[in-house]
Every structure is written in C-alpha cells, then in structure tokens.
Write a protein that binds this DNA or RNA. Structure first.
Length: 528
RNA sequence: GGGGCGGUAGCUCAGCUGGUUAGAGCAGUGGACUCAUAAUCCAUCGGUCACGGGUUCAAGUCCCGUCCGCCCUACCA
C-alpha cells in the first residue's frame, strides 16, 4: 500500500487587482490543512498560484499602457507573492499560468481531448460580459439605465454586455452528466459542504450543455495547438494548473502526479461549479482520476454584505496583520467562522476575540506557566511525581482534544478542530486556579506537589504548541522555544500530532526561558 | 415561476432522527484569587426560538401559509 499522502490546492488567483481578506482566508484554510496533515506524518503537498490570462487582464494592461505579461509580473511580485508572506503561508509550489511548464501541459491535455473527439468546432452567439469572462443568458441581465439606456448590462459589473458571435471549439461536457452524477453518488464527500453538494447535483441533473472553450477575438491566452488562430478560454487554461504544477504529461504522468493526485480543492463557493462539474468532466475525458474533494467555503460578510472586489468593500490583509499579526489573522478567520458557511467579519469581533481568546486565554496561560517555572524552579522544568485526579484529568482532556480535532480536520471542519483544541486552554487555566501552585510554593514540604503541578501544566503547553502550530506557527514556535522543547526534543514543525498526547515528553531539567507576551494587548487607537 | 438556505439571549452562533425548567462564547453584573498580558476562576442577569395556523400526550425541532435576507435555476416574451 502506498504511503499516505495529502495534497491541497487553493484557486489560482486572478491577477487583475490586489488581494483582499477573502483571498487570504482561502489561502490560510488550505495552509492549515496542509500543515496539520504534515504534522500528522502524512506526505503533504500544497499548491497556490495565479491565473494570468484572459480578456479582462489584457484590457486592464492595455489601459495601463503595459503588456499583459508585464502587468501580471508586476501584480504577482508586488501583491500576490507578498500576500503569502503577510499571512505566513508555507506552500510547496506557486504556479503561474503564464509559465511554460503550465502552458505546455494545457496544450498537451487539450490536444489529447481533441484527438479523442471530446472537442469539436462550432458556432456560438450570445451576450458576453467581459468582467465575468462569460456568456450570459438574457434573464441573467438587467436593463441598462442612464448612459446605458436600451442596452443589456451585467448585474454584477453594471456595464453593458457585448454581443459576440464566435466560431469556437467546444468541449462535449454534455456527455458527462451521468458519470458526474455517479461520482457525486458514490463519493458523497466529493463536494462539501452538503448544501453546496445539493446545489451542484440538482444543477447537473437538469442536464449539461457543451462548453465553448476557445476564443479568437484576442490572443492573451494559451494557444490552441491545432489551430493557432484560437486561444483557450481562461477557465480551461486555469483549471489545468492543478495537474500542470504536479508535472503531469500525456505520455508520462510523473512522480509528483503519481504521488499527490488527486488533490483536495479548497475554493470559494462561487466557483465551486467550475471545480465540481467542469473540471472533473475534463479529467474524465482525459482518462484521469477526479479530484479527491472539492470544498466550497463561505463568503466573508462585511456589514452583512458579501465582500467583493467589484464593489470595493475589500479589506487588505495587511490592515489586519499590521495590528494583530499573522497568527491572529489565521486564528480569527478559522475559529470564528464555521468552515463552509458564510461568516461576518467586523473589527469589533476580531478585537474582542483577540483579547479574550488569544491574549487572555492562550497567551496569558503561557505567561503564567513559564513565569512560575522561572520563579519557583529557577527556570528548570521540574518532574511530576504522584499524579492526582486533577493532573490525570489534564492528560485526558488533551487526549480527547487530539482525537476530536483529528476527526474534525479529516472533515475539513477546521473551526471544530480549533474549538476542540481550545478545551485544553480553558482546562489548564482552571487547573492552575484550582491547584494554586503559588500557595503550594510557600510550603516547603509540598515541593513535590508544586513540581507535579508545573510539570503537568508545561506538558499541557507542549501539547498546545504542537496542536496549534498549524494555525499559529509563529507564536507556538516562541512558546516551544521558551519551554526548552526545541533543545530537548527538536523543532516544533517536526512534532507529530498523532503522538502529542503521549505524556511526559518534556524532560526534567529542560531550560525554560522567559517568554514575551505572545499576544500583546492592543490599544484601541491602533485599530484601523 | 421552481428549488434551496437562513431568520434562536445586546453580539456571533450551537441546538441530530420532536420529549423534562432552550444552550455556548463574548459583552453586562456580583464574588474569589494574585502565578500571569488589571490576566484567571466561580456565580449570575438576559430569549413570547421571525409571524399566523395545524398535527401531537408533547414542537425551536414536523406540516401549511405569511413576512424578511440570501443563494441556485427556468420559462414566457
């Protein structure tokens, strides 16, 4: 049997404008899943990247008086790569659709479909919205007013649509309806969450049309290999990134592809259909395995409305990380929002959770334990001796948290996993208050008891560091070092989640060093 | 037009196949404690479960209707 492996992708982001917290949310979720699996000892691979073709980018570039490639290069360098730094993403690869390694795979993939008669030449006429990059049915359109009087306008972009008549290549997607339904049936978690699955299933049940997959009205795209007057439609080009990055070839699948395909796709629910219908149909046509899972997360609501780039309600991730840090960003969005559902964002809620959960809960817990080991044990980790029910209870809470968090992460229920882990924070704070080590320390006959309490608390922090490392890599690393764990048992990133509940890993005498506040209080006037 | 989702404490949300006095976190209030980032711990206040009917011994939980918010999707023209 092959070694367990896990691969996860984000959508590749359209480089037409700057990243907002919705993009960052997707990135963080995928990153946490990747880091978690990696620390479970699973061979893991995570992918993100940028989507750089299409008419919209061409037009934006022209408007800015640069070539589309120059425009894309600039945004990738100035905005999208830095985003990954801002929110601390540890991706294994970053693919750009303008890279040769991608374009050649797109051509090979579609050539194969063409050779096997899944692609044919046809004609299409319809209303086309440049903003959406897609054809619209008339009922999807609004009547224009004012300067656009008498024209159809796209309700999303508020701009008139264009009538296009194109002779294009079409993909025979209509042939795959039954096989897609069978896929949804036999693999119920192929599309998650269930609400989204239901939508997709009923969409496919109504029957699928063939898809126009090429354009000849402009040339910013991957050239159709058998007809150089055409370029591929941007979505067809883009979806293939998931296997081009793995080095797939028509004749030679390649090592990465063999090992990591099929991947798990994390996407916003608005593009779930591309990933759960079109993409698997393309893969079926090519005779390749369909994705492991397509998970559509919800939208971030700001003031009750979907945050969107076209409505300019976007918040830049740095606005948050500059004040609260990347760990808090990662924690907040994954903890406060049920993964898969829409979630409200507000500065008030962010600040409140930062204060209550990170500063007062986890951060302060770390401070008090480390400070007591310093004060009462000269900074040397003490050993536990006679274990009371209270001590044993800490251990069992950790065991239960690991079990529940692992089960939740397997379902991509990230918020549930974090909630399960957080029971350890709450339990430890209560344990310390009840055991009153500061009182025990005043009685010299109770030194053994004092040591047991502090050793138990430190073990709890060790477990928390490991369990929370995927979510908050920076602060847990600080805590890990302060506990002396780095020197005693090795780097945090190498600690296994499936072994974290084994008690007593921190050795007696480990050097516990001072710890600055992990989540310093934020003054109100620092808020954006 | 059809289908789906949501409307539960000030805020954000749990409440599975109907079953004792509807829950959590935060915020508020009172108390305990001092190791810690004026942190922690305990207690407590707070809801006609959108509205109106119905089924049932029993409904937030099922059925019908209405209102509000959102999503998917058709047709006539």
């Amino acid at each position: 049997m092959a070694a367990p492996s896990f691969s996860v992708t984000t959508p590749i982001f359209y480089v037409n404008d700057a990243p907002h917290i919705g993009h960052a949310y997707t990135e963080v979720a995928a990153d946490v899943l990747a880091r978690w699996n990696r620390q479970c000892g699973v061979d893991t691979w995570s992918l993100t990247g940028t989507d750089e073709h299409g008419q919209k980018i061409l037009r934006t570039a022209v408007a800015n008086d640069v070539t589309p490639k120059e425009w894309a290069d600039k945004l990738v360098a100035d905005a999208w790569i830095p985003l990954l730094q801002t929110i601390d993403i540890a991706n294994d690869d970053f693919i750009r659709t303008t890279e040769e390694r991608h374009e050649s795979v797109v051509q090979a993939f579609l050539q194969k479909l063409y050779d096997d008669d899944y692609i044919y030449f046809g004609e299409y006429e319809g209303y086309y919205c440049v903003g959406c990059e897609e054809y619209k049915q008339t009922d999807d359109l609004a009547q224009g007013a004012g300067e656009f009087e008498g024209q159809y306008v796209c309700p999303i972009h508020g701009r008139p649509v264009e009538v296009l008549k194109e002779a294009n290549y079409f993909f025979r997607m209509s042939a795959f309806g039954d096989r897609l339904l069978e896929l949804y049936e036999t693999q119920p978690d192929f599309i998650q969450p269930d609400s989204l699955r239901n939508e997709i299933v009923s969409f496919v049940r109504r029957g699928l049309d063939d898809l126009s997959i090429s354009r000849q009205s402009f040339d910013w795209g991957v050239r159709v290999p058998w007809d150089d007057k055409h370029v591929f439609y941007v979505w067809f080009d883009a979806l293939i990134n998931y296997i081009s990055a793995l080095g797939w070839r028509a004749d030679e699948p390649g090592e990465l592809f063999q090992k990591f395909w099929p991947s798990n796709h994390i996407v916003g629910k608005d593009i779930a259909r591309f990933h759960a219908v079109i993409w698997p149909a393309m893969l079926m046509a090519a005779g390749l395995p369909t994705p492991r899972r397509v998970f559509g997360h919800g939208w971030l609501l700001v003031g009750g409305e979907k945050m969107s780039k076209s409505k300019l309600t976007g918040i830049a991730p740095e606005q948050i990380t500059d004040v609260f840090g990347s760990d808090a960003f990662r924690y907040y969005f994954l903890r406060a929002i049920s993964f898969g559902q829409d979630g409200s964002f507000s500065w008030e809620d962010l600040a409140a959770r930062y204060q209550a959960e990170l500063a007062n809960g986890f951060g302060n817990l770390a401070s008090r334990v480390v400070a007591m080991v310093g004060r009462y044990c000269d900074g040397r980790l003490p050993a536990a001796s006679d274990v009371t029910d209270a001590d044993a209870r800490i251990h069992s809470v950790v065991e239960s948290a690991v079990e529940r968090a692992t089960a939740a992460m397997d379902r991509f229920a990230i918020h549930e996993a974090i909630a399960a882990i957080w029971t350890v924070v709450d339990e430890l704070n209560g344990y310390l208050t009840e055991q009153e080590p500061w009182k025990v320390a005043k009685d010299e006959s109770q030194t053994a008891r004092l040591h047991t309490i502090l050793a138990t608390a430190a073990e709890g922090l060790r477990a928390l560091s490991v369990l929370l490392a995927p979510v908050m890599p920076k602060s847990t690393a600080l805590l890990w070092t302060a506990l002396g764990a780095d020197a005693a048992i090795g780097p945090l990133a190498e600690q296994r989640i499936d072994q974290v509940a084994t008690w007593g890993q921190l050795p007696e005498g480990a050097e516990v060093s001072a710890l600055p506040p992990l989540f310093p209080r934020i003054e109100v006037d620092q808020l954006g």
